[in-house]
């Protein structure tokens, strides 16, 4: 069976990568194991859990439901872009810390990549709006309440900073 390789050029977190990939390599595996950006997690590989969410040309998408080859010429952002280990947090990271919005933290990168985009588009969200936006990310630890609190807190602080 044909299984050829493709050369792709992808911009990830502002850095250009040229890599050769197998057709079937999932974008999630490419990001994690080829680019060694292991902050993007994998929980189901069928599009339900949201742990693998990254931003593709600015929009949150499931990286487990795309092939790396499809990312050729596109721009991707992962959790590693939000703040470097020494840098100041993104307001949502700070709010997640302050509101205890994470426990095991496995779902957290996907939630950050979903909800930072949401906050950019919805500076004054309601709680139902936040919950709706969050519904594509499963968290088994927190029961979501502190995550919702964190998103609302981040929104408030981001409005204040504007």
């Amino acid at each position: 069976m044909s299984n050829e390789r493709h050369t792709i050029v992808v911009t990830v977190n502002g850095q250009r990568y040229a890599r050769e990939v197998e057709s079937r390599l999932l974008l999630s595996d490419f990001i994690r194991h080829d680019l060694l950006l292991a902050g993007t997690h994998v929980g189901c590989e069928h599009g339900v859990c949201g742990a693998c969410t990254v931003q593709l040309d600015g929009l949150p998408v499931r990286s487990c439901l795309m092939f790396a080859a499809q990312a050729d010429g596109h721009e991707i952002r992962t959790v590693e872009a939000l703040a470097s280990p020494q840098d100041e947090f993104h307001p949502l990271q700070q709010a997640m810390h302050d509101a205890h919005g994470l426990q095991c933290g496995y779902c957290t990168p996907g939630i950050l990549m979903t909800m930072t985009a949401f906050l950019d588009a919805h500076p004054s969200p309601s709680e139902p709006g936040v919950r709706e936006a969050l519904s594509g990310n499963l968290c088994r630890c927190t029961g979501y309440q502190h995550i919702v609190d964190a998103v609302l807190l981040a929104a408030e602080r981001m409005r204040g900073a504007r």
Partner: peptide
Amino acid sequence: VKRNEDRRLLTGQALFVDDVE
């Protein structure tokens, strides 16, 4: 008290088993 472990988890730097290369 806010959690000591959060920074690594929030920045994608925490090591999970599948991250071992």
